[in-house]
């Protein structure tokens, strides 16, 4: 439920004075595809081993928690180099790239991101042996209200 000014997904992001003028339509499919292609660099990604933990429904499209992890020994010869986080429907799809070292001890990180609209988030991990892992998960950005 809501008032005018809070009823479209576009306007959903108008909260707390932080206005994100993300468009309501798919930004640029080519942009996220290009980003993924660039990261993969010709390698074929495996769909296991990378955990992408996001809420099924965003409480607030401006602040969506993300947990990322890969089970890795994180030794000098076997570690996760990076995890990339992509929100394909955002105007700039690459949200962040997280870079680990063996001194990280554990390939795990948490942060919070902005989501323009309901979409399937993509994460890609690059390992020291050049393996690539991919995971995806849908986050629904809803108008909300009416619960009970």
């Amino acid at each position: 439920m809501g008032e005018t000014g809070q009823i479209s997904r576009r306007n959903l992001l108008v909260t707390g004075g932080a206005l994100l003028a993300f468009g309501p339509t798919r930004a640029d499919a080519a942009a996220s595809d290009a980003e993924i292609t660039r990261i993969l660099a010709g390698r074929t990604a495996k769909v296991t081993g990378l955990t992408l933990d996001v809420p099924s429904i965003a409480e607030n499209g401006l602040v969506v928690p993300v947990n990322l992890s890969v089970a890795s020994p994180m030794t000098a010869t076997d570690y996760v180099r990076a995890i990339h986080l992509i929100a394909p429907e955002n105007p700039i799809p690459l949200v962040a790239s997280f870079r680990f070292t063996p001194a990280s001890g554990r390939a795990a990180t948490s942060m919070r991101m902005r989501l323009a609209q309901t979409q399937t988030i993509v994460a890609i991990a690059e390992l020291s042996n050049n393996d690539v892992l991919i995971a995806q998960a849908e986050v629904k950005v809803t108008i909300g209200g009416c619960g009970g």
């Binding site: 809420p55 099924s56 429904i57 965003a58 409480e59 607030n60 602040v63 909300g144 209200g145 619960g147």
Partner: peptide
Amino acid sequence: FTPIANPRWLMPDWNFGI
């Protein structure tokens, strides 16, 4: 889903979820 189904401004500092 409390901060989605109900007003988030009443619990602004807390994150819920499953």
